[in-house]
């Protein structure tokens, strides 16, 4: 790969980061002008508190999309883990130290299973993860149809805890994103995710353990869904099988807005982070100026189309 192409790719990605960053500033200014409560510490703190769930599922989606796949089981998985956590903690509120690792382990295992199925059956990830989503959702509903369970106070606190005035969840999110970015850029395994996404056959021919990397990406997505579920359960205090339903598709939006190409191999976590900020801030602003959630849907759809439209080029035959 010549230095020039690398440079162009970098620039292209930088350009999309720049666009999103400018949009963020514009949104902040617009928010400040439209409402004098928008740019208060209180609201910014609230905003950062909301970031973690969307942020984590989008990060998971980023790994999978970079590797050239897609994970549509995220929402069902988040729902299933919240149900597990809330019911487990209702049964034994004293075992938080056991429940959290178990939840993360289960989520990672389900993610890895997604990856294994795509590798072993060689079926399109869209089909595998849609199918898995249906299976996970059905299994969760068979266990608990309605939201239920409860969590001990100490556990609920992690959703609202602050360290030096900054929400704990925001710190966790930034640290995880930074680690993920470093891992993707600086380590062999991390970089191989890009290789597999860019050209799977070439990666295989270069001796990369492609199958293992695919499974790893899905496992990481599962792990991220698990972390999202922990904070979601802490915030809501119940386990709800349906709570993740909208998350699957929402997780895709920050990824594509941040410039990660759905075909795989290009993009990064910084873009996703900016995308998460943008989406969260936009929703918050629209709520502030009382735009109904109905129009928010329309705007979300338009953003997807515009964001993707910017990054795509005309197909030539």
């Amino acid at each position: 790969m010549s230095a020039i192409t690398v440079d162009l790719r970098r620039n292209r990605l930088l350009l999309s980061y720049l666009i999103v960053a400018v949009l963020l500033v514009l949104l902040a200014v617009a928010g400040g002008l439209l409402s004098d409560r928008f740019l208060t510490w209180r609201n910014i703190g609230n905003l950062f508190q909301q970031l973690i769930v969307l942020g984590m599922v989008s990060l998971g989606q980023t790994f999978v999309v970079l590797m050239g796949g897609i994970d549509l089981a995220i929402g069902s998985l988040v729902g299933a883990i919240t149900v597990f956590l809330a019911n487990f903690l209702e049964w034994r509120p004293d075992l938080v130290w056991l429940a959290l690792p178990l939840a993360l382990l289960a989520a990672t295992a389900v993610g890895a299973l997604n990856g294994l199925l795509t590798v072993v059956l060689r079926v399109h990830p869209l089909i595998v993860t849609l199918g898995m989503s249906s299976i996970i959702f059905g299994a969760t509903l068979m266990y608990r149809k309605e939201p239920g369970g409860s969590v001990p106070r100490a556990f609920a606190d992690i959703a609202y805890a602050k360290v030096g005035g900054i929400p704990l969840s925001a710190i966790v999110l930034v640290v995880i994103f930074a680690l993920a970015g470093l891992w993707l850029q600086r380590t062999r395994t991390g970089r191989s995710i890009y290789f597999v996404g860019g050209d799977r056959e070439a990666a295989r021919l270069n001796g990369l353990p492609v199958d293992r990397i695919v499974v790893l990406a899905y496992a990481l997505s599962g792990l991220c869904a698990g972390i999202a579920a922990i904070f979601l359960t802490a915030r809501t205090g119940v386990g709800d099988p349906r709570i993740g339903a909208a998350l699957t598709l929402q997780s895709v939006m920050p990824v594509v807005v941040g410039g990660t190409i759905l075909a795989g191999g290009r993009g990064g976590v910084l873009g996703t982070f900016l995308g998460v900020l943008l989406v969260t801030m936009l929703n918050s602003l629209l709520n502030f100026v009382n735009v109904s959630s109905y129009y928010q849907w329309v705007i979300q759809g338009l953003i997807i189309i515009i964001a993707v439209g910017i990054h795509t080029t005309r197909r030539r035959y």
């Binding site: 895709v252 329309v298 338009l302 005309r314």
Partner: peptide, 15 residues
């Protein structure tokens, strides 16, 4: 526009 069918129709669904 060469948008992936998944994203194009997903956006349409939400809109």
């Amino acid at each position: 526009r060469n948008v992936s069918p998944f994203l194009a129709t997903l956006a349409m669904m939400i809109i």
